[in-house]
Design a protein around this nucleic acid. Structure first.
Lengths: 238, 238
DNA sequence: CGTCTGGTTGATCTAGATCAACAGGAGTGG
DNA sequence: CCACTCCTGTTGATCTAGATCAACCAGACG
């Protein structure tokens, strides 16, 4: 199991290749290892809260993190998800501002916090690190735009199917007949937040999909008889 | 009048201070001037279309540009607006991909296109130029997230008021009694696209605002008796 | 004149939110 | 062990913001 309370080492981290820190040398990695704080997080814990002072960036080793934005009325919207290998909180760091979003752990996992000062130092000495963050922010922008467009033009049902397929991409165990099984990483409430609707609506949609035979649900366990069929019932963006 | 068919010069461009090209030296500016294509655009013209090959970046001297995304069904969503001093199309350039959005001129103005190769050359020699683009993309991200959250949590009426205030910020002529007059830069159809609703809905909302005395409309001309009162009737994000 | 485009209004429809009730665990405490 | 509460998920009934459809009007322009 990858989750434990041991301090993880960046030098041997298998996720590193897909992170912004991929190209660092051994000395820099040692620096990271010395000055980082890492630990296991349980679902529901908060990495940082919107409006808080930025105290570094968080590199996700395992689990799943939701990035939420809330307004004064207490309305909270899940704007994006961050997966293992992603670093979050870099934005307010680069802007030298307070955190713009809140980061909440959706699925328990291990996360490393890298101290402000270290990131600054590395950024100053490694120009390509900045470039990596640029690339990341461009991807985040594209992703957010996509979610924005979908929330306007797709009905809730299509959005549910879409996220189902995304989760299946990451977590699904495909059968050889085009079917697939997976366990949803989140409860209904979070699923609703991701899709941008209410738990009640999710419930009804799930029932409908079940009746149509497109998917079978048992709690968080999902069985998809034909992934292709799900794909076909999507508006197909872009 | 700032719009004409003459070739504009970056060296003396008054907008340059607010663009990504602010810190360039005189030689670099001369390079830009030699290799750029600039001209007046009328409302409705398209700078580039989603899916097209990137052939450079566009620096907006005057006017207003809408960035739209469309899916297969022909649904089109205005994701962001770009104002004078902003450069658009840099994203697909940096990602070396085809254009992700379409850019359509909403308000006639002058726009300079800067050739791919030149941008590459400048980026390679001027690291702070990349940093500027990073900052710009971070702002675009924040803006898009804001619009995303608003489209979920605010009713159409609040969104209309919000964009009204934004336009007032840029174009309004304040009276000394807290009132303000402005001319909307766009027709109802575009206003609807910006807010994310239909022209019919805009029409009704406008009528309501009029009845409540919050604003008076005559075509594109708007008169706001009390800007403060408009501000107060907003949910106040963040 | 007719035709076209942009804006307004009215009537209708519907996706999805909201409100309310309830059922099944999972603890927790006596 | 039962009684209690707490929490998640499901279902039903109702409500409503806003989309859709359709008609109409006023200029603009050939």
């Amino acid at each position: 199991m990858s989750q434990n309370c041991q301090k993880h080492s960046c030098a041997v981290c298998p996720m590193r290749a897909t992170t912004e820190w991929a190209d660092l040398g051994t000395e820099e990695l040692a620096l990271l290892d010395q000055h980082k704080f890492d630990r296991d997080y349980r679902a529901g814990e908060v990495l940082f809260r919107q409006g808080e002072r930025n105290n570094g960036v968080y590199c996700i080793h395992s689990g799943l993190v939701g990035l939420k934005r809330l307004d004064r009325d207490g309305n909270t919207v899940l704007v994006r998800m961050a997966h293992p290998g992603e670093t979050v909180g870099y934005r307010s760091f680069l802007k030298q501002s307070d955190h713009i979003l809140s980061a909440e752990v959706l699925v328990a996992g291990h996360v490393c916090r890298i101290e402000r000062s270290i990131v600054s130092r590395l950024l100053a000495t490694h120009p390509d690190l900045g470039l990596r963050f640029l690339r990341h922010s461009l991807e985040a922008l594209a992703d957010t735009e996509q979610r924005f467009v979908q929330s306007r033009t797709w009905p809730a049902r299509a959005r549910l199917l879409h996220t189902l397929l995304i989760f299946n991409e990451r977590l699904g165990k495909p059968g050889q007949d085009g079917s697939s099984r997976l366990t949803l990483p989140v409860a209904r409430r979070e699923l609703a937040a991701i899709i941008g609707t209410t738990p009640e609506a999710i419930s009804r949609l799930v029932r409908d999909l079940q009746n149509e035979g497109l998917a079978h649900f048992d709690g968080r366990a999902v069985e998809i008889p034909s992934v292709d069929e799900l794909l076909n019932s999507l508006p197909v963006l872009e």
